[in-house]
Design a protein around this nucleic acid. Structure first.
Length: 298
DNA sequence: ATAGAGACCTGTGTGC
DNA sequence: TGCACACAGGTCTCTA
């Protein structure tokens, strides 16, 4: 589900509730999600205080006073809901929180329930169970087998044409695949890859190497692509992400960016580029739908 | 080395 | 209404 803008939206929603609070109790409804939970998972969370909540690519990382870190990936359908002590959260501005009464009935996909000091509760639900939760042991700060091979953070300083040129040089894989590859750029998914390629006017079928000169320098198209990725992620973030089906921020508010898709899920609709007149097409690449306008994406 | 398919799960929408 | 099938925001593992 969630790509970078959605995960970051969830992080921002969870941060004011989670950070600085002690985890009082953890209730696990099953042994794991995509992978089994680590040994003594609940016991190692209980009694610790969350000291920070950061994001790397599509992963959330909560630092704990125990020295360990709690690693979370939302998979396709992972979702956090915050339950306020009395349904009237204080000092959290526009955020909406589900009330205790609303959340009284535990859903069939509520796999992890975390009670925080002060009566706050976090519920992690995940129908497809592609999500991941693990612990990073003390001293291994930020290091985990799932994090070690992640590539460039797309909103960070390393996201530039020179670095992408290095990664794309000699790559025969189509742009769609190269941008979806978390080892190259970490955080894009099916939606934002399609949207960024549209904005850059690049065909998803083009080999990644075609954006790099023989000498290894970025071509103009690659410069455009870098700007397009940055722009689409920034705008999506400002809109609170995209809600297709079940995604919502931790505050329960649905994202709004899906209303601004240029190509994603718009098969058969007219291209939105002024003067193009083309029709958005769906094309299956590596088992995933790619949406693009064959007329203006070359 | 690397591109593609299959796998992991459940829910939803579509067409017959 | 029921049923079969395609498809969904991800990514690891296996195969050519």
């Amino acid at each position: 589900m969630p790509e970078l803008p959605e995960v970051e939206t969830v992080r921002r929603g969870l941060e004011p509730v989670l950070v600085g609070r002690r985890i009082a109790r953890v209730d696990l409804a099953r042994d794991g999600l995509r992978f089994p939970f680590p040994k003594s998972f609940a016991a190692r969370l209980e009694g610790t205080t969350v000291t920070g909540l950061s994001r790397r690519a599509k992963y959330l990382i909560a630092s704990l006073s125990s020295g360990e870190s709690w690693l979370i990936h939302l998979g396709m359908t992972g979702r956090f809901t915050i339950v306020a002590p009395d349904g009237r959260p204080q000092g959290l501005g526009e955020f909406y929180y589900e009330t205790a009464a609303d959340a009284a009935a535990r859903g069939p996909h509520d796999h992890v329930v975390i009670d925080l000091d002060g009566g706050w509760r976090l519920i992690y639900a995940d129908p497809r169970r592609f999500g991941i939760m693990d612990l990073i042991v003390s001293g291994n700060e930020g290091r985990h087998v799932l994090l070690d091979h992640l590539g460039i953070e797309p909103l960070g300083n390393a996201m530039n044409a020179e670095n992408l040129a290095m990664a794309f040089a000699g790559k025969k894989a189509p742009l769609k695949a190269a941008l979806s590859d978390q080892k190259i750029i970490a955080g894009l998914g099916n939606i934002y890859v399609c949207e960024a390629l549209f904005r850059a006017g690049l065909s998803p079928l083009k080999p990644a190497s075609s954006l790099v000169t023989k000498a290894g320098a970025p071509r103009v198209g690659l410069e455009r692509l870098v700007q397009a990725i940055r722009a689409v992620l920034t705008e999506a973030l400002a809109a609170g992400g995209s809600t297709l089906r079940d995604y919502a921020g931790a505050d329960g508010v649905a994202g709004q960016f899906q209303q601004r898709f240029d190509v994603y899920d718009r098969e058969g609709s007219p291209c939105k580029r002024a003067g193009c007149g083309g029709t958005v097409r769906r094309h299956v690449q590596a088992g995933r739908s790619t949406f693009y306008c064959p007329r203006c994406q070359r």
